[in-house]
């Protein structure tokens, strides 16, 4: 985000050496006040609640400051929420990103196909997990269309159990996440100058070599970001874990545990401790991916000139 030299700033003439002049030279003047309302909003509505939650987590109803955290990690049922969440979020993110790459790659030159698919995919994203869960309850239920079709063509003999368990949540995240992954990875892919692929071909690289040696390294940063976003999306899973999952055991995820502590047991300290743990686990994984991305990446994916 480079700042363009702005000719638009009000030219305030201040004596050289005055405080205002010196601040102006460093880029500080009244113009910056324009950003203040947004900053105030973020501080009041995000930073303050966040710190408030952090503080609450260290003020348990009983015991010392770390009691909530200690209880979280010593209680097997609560501790398992980390694993339950990751067990959903990581595979979903991997499957979605890999699938999206496979679908997007052949489409990098097909403009019309790209447009049609992008539009088709934006629909399930807009519907969101609640609506998708509602549809899944009927469609994937024991008497739903899918089980009927599979039974009629003789693929299975008894209905598959696809809802109210791990797979129900997995599928709901797949449905809402895949379009996301597809659109994001496709946009990164089409951002790579096609000249690189042509140059590689002219230098004798086969289609596979072009993918492996040129496109993939240039695509990787975008894929890294896509993976992070997909992971974050799946990590925050809440409504579908409740509606199409098994929220008391296999899909007892962090969000559900936090909600339960806050609104059923009124233990805000524990609820906030869980959300802090959730944020830390999520940011840790994101940080790992981004570090890898920064290491693997040199240069830009577009030609500098022309």
């Amino acid at each position: 985000m480079s700042a363009a030299p702005s000719y638009g700033d009000a030219v305030t003439i201040a004596p050289i050496g005055s405080l205002r002049g010196r601040l102006k030279a460093r880029g500080i003047d009244r113009g910056l006040l324009l950003a203040v309302p947004a900053m105030v909003f973020v501080v009041l509505l995000f930073v303050y609640p966040f710190l408030y939650g952090l503080m609450l987590s260290f003020q348990p109803q009983h015991g010392d400051a770390f009691a909530s955290y200690r209880q979280f990690f010593s209680d097997g049922y609560l501790r398992a929420t980390i694993w339950n969440t990751l067990r959903l979020a990581l595979p979903v993110a991997v499957v979605n990103v890999a699938g999206a790459m496979a679908v997007a790659y052949p489409l990098r030159k097909a403009r019309r196909g790209r447009q049609a698919l992008s539009t088709a995919f934006i629909v399930p994203i807009t519907f969101g997990t609640v609506l998708v869960s509602d549809g899944m309850l009927t469609y994937l239920g024991p008497n739903g269309w899918l089980n009927q079709v599979l039974q009629d063509i003789g693929l299975i003999h008894s209905p598959l159990v696809l809802i109210h368990n791990y797979w129900g949540v997995f599928i709901s995240l797949l449905i809402t996440g895949f379009p996301f992954a597809f659109l994001l990875s496709l946009s990164h892919l089409t951002g790579i100058d096609p000249a690189f692929e042509r140059a590689a071909a002219a230098l004798g690289a086969s289609p596979w070599q072009r993918f492996r040696r040129v496109i993939l390294p240039l695509w990787a940063p975008g894929i890294g970001i896509t993976f992070c976003l997909l992971f974050m999306l799946a990590f925050a899973v809440f409504p579908s874990a409740e509606l199409v999952g098994n929220p008391s055991s296999t899909t007892h995820v962090l969000s559900i545990a936090a909600y339960f502590e806050a609104y059923e047991r009124y233990d805000y300290s524990m609820a906030c401790a869980i959300t802090i743990v959730a944020a830390l686990v999520e940011l840790l994984i994101v940080a790992v991916v981004l570090t890898w991305r920064a290491r693997a990446y040199h240069g830009a994916s577009t030609v500098g000139k022309g």
Partner: peptide
């Protein structure tokens, strides 16, 4: 960073204290 962070952390993290 301040503008990016609310989009990065899970909504429950700030949603419940808020």
């Amino acid at each position: 960073a301040m503008f990016l962070l609310p989009l990065l952390v899970p909504p429950v993290t700030y949603g419940i204290p808020l």
